[in-house]
Simulated scan of single mutants.
Amino acid sequence: MARPTSPADLLLHPVRLRVLHALLGGEELTTADLATRLPDVPTASLYRHVARLVDAGVLTVVSERAVRGTTERTYAVDLAATHLGPDALATMSREDHRRAFTAFTAGLLGQFERYLEREEVDLARDRVGYREAALWLTDEELDELLGELRDTVAERTAHRPGPGRVRRTLATVVLPDDVPGT
C-alpha cells in the first residue's frame, strides 16, 4: 500500500480518523486499547494505520513497557499535526473536500450509531443533541463568533478525565447558505 502523499490523504482515511477520535481529549492508549475500542478493525490493519500516524508525527509514543517479550507502546495524538492549514486546504480539490466532509460526517454517523446501540439510550439524560441555526452575519461577525467558540472550547479541552466527567464530542460545521438575494 502506498504512503499517503498529502496531510489530507493521511488524516482522512476512515480507520485513521477513528484512531484519532479515540485519542482526542488527552487519551493515551496502547494498540490493544485501540483494538478494544475499534473491534471491527482487523488487528493487522490497526497496527498498520497506527504506524502510519506515528511515522507522520501525528501520534507520539508517550511510554513503552516490556510485555511478554515485546514492547507495548502507549500513544497520544499531537493535535497540531492533525490541523490542515490554509496551504493544505488550498491545494485540495473539490473532490478532496467532498471526501473530507464525507469522512467527517461518516465519523459522526458512526459515533451516533454506536451510541444508539447501547443497552440504554436517553438523549436528554446523556445530553445528546443535534440542531441547526441560521445566522445572518457579516464576515467580521462570523470571525468574532468563531473566535469566541474556539476560545471557549480550547479552555475546556484542557480538562482531563475525572469524577463526573464524560468524554463528549462537539462537532461544528459552518456553511454559507445559498439564499436568493444575499
Results as ranks from 00 to 15, higher is better:
M1P: 09
A2H: 07
A2G: 06
R3F: 07
D9P: 01
D9S: 13
H13D: 15
P14R: 09
L17P: 00
L20W: 00
L20Y: 00
A22P: 01
L24H: 11
G25T: 02
E27C: 08
L29K: 15
L29N: 05
A35T: 08
R37G: 14
P39A: 06
V41G: 04
T43V: 08
S45W: 02
S45R: 13
Y47R: 12
Y47E: 10
R48F: 10
T60R: 15
V61C: 14
V62L: 04
E64Q: 14
R65P: 04
A66D: 13
A66G: 04
V67E: 13
V67P: 00
G69A: 07
T71C: 01
E72L: 06
E72V: 07
A76G: 12
A76V: 03
V77R: 06
D78S: 11
L79F: 07
A80T: 13
G85W: 04
G85F: 09
D87F: 05
A88C: 03
L89K: 08
T91M: 09
M92G: 08
S93Q: 06
S93C: 05
R94T: 11
E95D: 13
H97C: 05
H97Q: 08
R98I: 05
R99L: 10
R99M: 04
F101N: 14
A103M: 04
F104Q: 06
A106W: 01
G107M: 04
L108K: 01
G110K: 01
F112Y: 10
E113R: 14
Y115W: 03
E117S: 12
R118K: 11
R118D: 07
V121Q: 02
D122P: 04
R125S: 11
R127P: 01
G129Q: 05
G129F: 12
E132R: 14
E132G: 09
E132H: 09
E132S: 13
A134Y: 09
L137G: 05
T138M: 03
E140M: 02
D143C: 05
E144Y: 04
L145F: 09
G147N: 10
E148F: 04
L149T: 07
R150L: 05
R150H: 13
V153S: 06
E155D: 15
E155W: 02
R156D: 11
A158H: 11
A158F: 04
R160K: 09
G162K: 02
P163H: 09
V166L: 13
R168Q: 13
T169A: 06
L170I: 13
T172L: 15
V173D: 06
V174D: 10
L175F: 06
P176K: 08
V179G: 01
P180W: 01
G181T: 03
